[in-house]
Simulated scan of single mutants.
Amino acid sequence: MCVSYLGFVFLIWFPGVLHAQSAAEPCPAPVLNGGYLVPKQDTYPDKTAVTYACDNGLKPAVEGWWATSTCQNGRWSHEPQCIDENYCLPPTITNGKYTENRNVQGQTIDITCNEGYEVKDRLITATCINQTWSSLPVCERSNNACVEPPQIPHAVILERYQEVFAANSRVRYGCKTGYTPNGRNTEIVTCSSGQWNGVPTCRK
């Protein structure tokens, strides 16, 4: 009797769990100035794709004269946007980001590299000329930055994983239960001139 009751409870509970795991948030209609959406709705279920185009003199902020964006658990895969047709499309800056400026020479961007990276050839700006960016700055790993810290037996790194660490970054190791840092080494290592200093060993 007890087994039958538990089976009944499981049958009722299990579909509810599946529903909770599969439920995804809908997306509100994006605000699109200077353009129109197809289909036009107040809200869109998850995984719904919308197509949009822009009015005369404008274009989507992605490649092509029309674009598609998809609802992904409450967020759009890219926010639909219309920009001046003479503007350049927003660039992708690997290992960096940019801020947009406007001046009498045209639309320009200033590049800032992520920690551990620096601009190549000291080029930090780009200008939009005839819908094309002049030479885009490149962010490359700094000579003083370090790659990921070395792996040591019986230890883990207690920091968020990243491929590059800026100079003077400090990273802490944690020895697994039953092990402690060996000798005069400490659990803290420091990035200096592209090398990790003070890497510990863990002993019982």
Rank of each mutant, 00 (worst) to 15 (best):
Q21N: 14
L37W: 06
P30Y: 07
P90T: 01
D55R: 09
W196I: 02
F14K: 05
V62C: 07
G57F: 07
V199N: 03
E85N: 03
P181Y: 03
C54D: 00
S192A: 13
P80Y: 11
N101S: 12
E148K: 14
G64E: 08
R122Q: 10
L136E: 13
T112I: 12
V119M: 13
Y173L: 01
K120N: 07
V156W: 12
P39Q: 14
E100L: 14
R160A: 13
E187V: 10
K120C: 01
P39D: 13
I124E: 08
V17Y: 04
P26W: 02
A61I: 11
Y173Q: 09
N185A: 09
N197E: 13
C71P: 00
I124Y: 05
C2W: 09
G16I: 10
A49F: 02
E140P: 00
V3A: 15
V189I: 15
P45I: 04
P149D: 09
Q162W: 06
C139D: 06
Q105P: 15
P149K: 04
G7V: 01
G183A: 03
I157Y: 00
K97I: 01
C71E: 00
W196Q: 03
N86S: 13
E63K: 11
R75L: 15
L123C: 08
N114D: 08
Y173N: 03
T68E: 11
K97P: 04
M1P: 09
W133C: 03
N197H: 06
R141Y: 05
L136D: 02
T132I: 01
V31F: 11
L37I: 14
G116T: 12
A20T: 03
N197A: 15
V171R: 11
C146Q: 04
Y161R: 08
K97Y: 05
I188T: 12
T43Q: 14
N197I: 11
S22K: 07
R172G: 06
N182I: 07
K47T: 09
T127H: 02
R184L: 02
T125G: 02
P26T: 14
L32Y: 08
C175V: 13
T99N: 10
L89D: 00
P137N: 03
L158F: 10
W66Y: 09
K97E: 07
